[in-house]
Design a protein around this nucleic acid. Sequence first.
DNA 1: CTGTTAGCGCTTTCAG
DNA 2: CTGAAAGCGCTAACAG
Lengths: 330, 330
Amino acid sequence: MKVTIRDVALKCGVSVATVSRVINNSDQVTDETKKRVMKVIDEFGFIPNTNARGLSTRSTNTVGIIVPNVSNPFFGELIEGAERAASENGYQIIILNSGYNTEKTLRDIMVLQSRDVDGIIMSTADIDEKTLDHLHENEIPFVLMGPIQYKYPVNYVSVDNMEGARMAVEHLVKLGHKKIAYCTEKYDNYLNQLRYEGYKKAFDSNGLEIQKGLYLEDSVTENVKNIISMNKEERPTAIFAFNDNIALSHMEALERNGIRIPEDMAVVGFDNIRFASYFSIQLTTIDNRQEEFGKKGFEILLDILKNDGTKTQQIVTKPQLVVRKSCGSK
Amino acid sequence: MKVTIRDVALKCGVSVATVSRVINNSDQVTDETKKRVMKVIDEFGFIPNTNARGLSTRSTNTVGIIVPNVSNPFFGELIEGAERAASENGYQIIILNSGYNTEKTLRDIMVLQSRDVDGIIMSTADIDEKTLDHLHENEIPFVLMGPIQYKYPVNYVSVDNMEGARMAVEHLVKLGHKKIAYCTEKYDNYLNQLRYEGYKKAFDSNGLEIQKGLYLEDSVTENVKNIISMNKEERPTAIFAFNDNIALSHMEALERNGIRIPEDMAVVGFDNIRFASYFSIQLTTIDNRQEEFGKKGFEILLDILKNDGTKTQQIVTKPQLVVRKSCGSK
DNA sequence: CTGTTAGCGCTTTCAG
DNA sequence: CTGAAAGCGCTAACAG
């Protein structure tokens, strides 16, 4: 049977209160009794029950983290960063997989609430107004990974997406490209909006016009079919992809159709996922360090928790262009 | 303030017991009162507290899952499978990242214990005798993902690693290779042992001798340096890698050194991670479906939980060879 | 069908 | 410095 605080109290001939004090490192216990209690705790292999503890303290030293897809390394890194930071601060994390489903996300939040988590870290990818409202109404401390628009200010950490996209496209322009496609996959969200803004900015600031028909938001297959069907005049010489995953699939499909990268088509992505640096891929991209963001996100949350954080924090980091071979430079 | 079962009881003019019955779907409540209570629950946005519930039922409907590295998609898939199966059965999972550290793994188990999880699913990669003993002594229901040797029988699900390795190497032999290196990275564990056995078996059954100096267990850089330094006589014409990750890094390092794949060197991996199928990689490998295993693992655990599972279950699936281009066949 | 009551394991006043 | 006792939110007999 499981050993409880009462068991060790009995064995030691002290009260449960005293045992509680020693496991909580209270200094109002004689070193002598402390030692005696510790010995029994060890001997019994006693592990204080976090749930019971949480019930009485209303704090579980646990934060929840919700991501759309754990098996996507992009989010894996986010989790890793958050987990490490949490662990270093004596916090544990509960990870939930929302599957890019806003309904599931809301349910996940409730699950987390029902477990008395102290706060929540979540990706912006699967969140909507309703969820935000719920968070707000229930006064749940949370921080978002990614940019967001909401009627109230919200804590978040994110790379400057617009600027990142601008830099990526600017890089292509500097290499002489004028017909640059924007490839995405039905991401009708704020993030896509921001990156598209950056894309446009690069054109504007270089006195260039965006050519018609180069905003491609179909499936990869469709997009590539589309590109191939264009004649030399229309066909883009470069692609800026919404993210690395999309860049990679386009590269794959293009090469299958005999279009060489970077000779026939320059490609730039966004995120700098690990595989982007793989030798036969060498994708030029914008760094978007999720691991660091996970860490930062937890730190903000911790700050809120400790200091009744009234002021919201919004951290936007400067993007970094990582030049590799897929854009043909160097 | 948070709303509790008492709040809704008061509001409804019923006892907490009745509310409890309603949220637990007991059929000993009039439809009428049930409806009335439900309405208030909704109105108040009442979410039953899982921890408190667990405290009194001694069951949290939660299972823990411990993997070495969440940001590795291999484990990500495992988690995904387990999470889905759990979720379908009304269970939640707590994911812990052990970082390939057996000490941390043991601590993680205690964390899970302190949270009253009903059982644990864990990867075999970061587990040792001491941990197994702890699990056993504390009578924690658990199932392992991967093969294991232990003094008592243990629940696990795994692909047949020996047979998988044998098939992989056999495939190379059939393609005419006689000098086949076994590349690994200081994995002095049971898993490596099994796969190495399979490697040997393939040689034996084909009446071939294993050449000396082809068991490479250094870093990738060292291994490749080693290979390059060999003269034509000694140099292997093919590599069987302990897993896909190792296969990929070797491929990368080899190509950097001007050795073409598969022309100059055939490569076969193990695991069939998602990226193995990527067009410019096309790694021949052994399928090792983690997602399915995660699901299966949860099901076994559930069976144990529901049926006081006295008999241990060991599921070993038949491996499948996935032929792509890296071995030069077809 | 419903209410009362005694815990689940732990923390936290309040006394002493 | 230590103990007794109330209570965290919920469930589960036991009565009625």
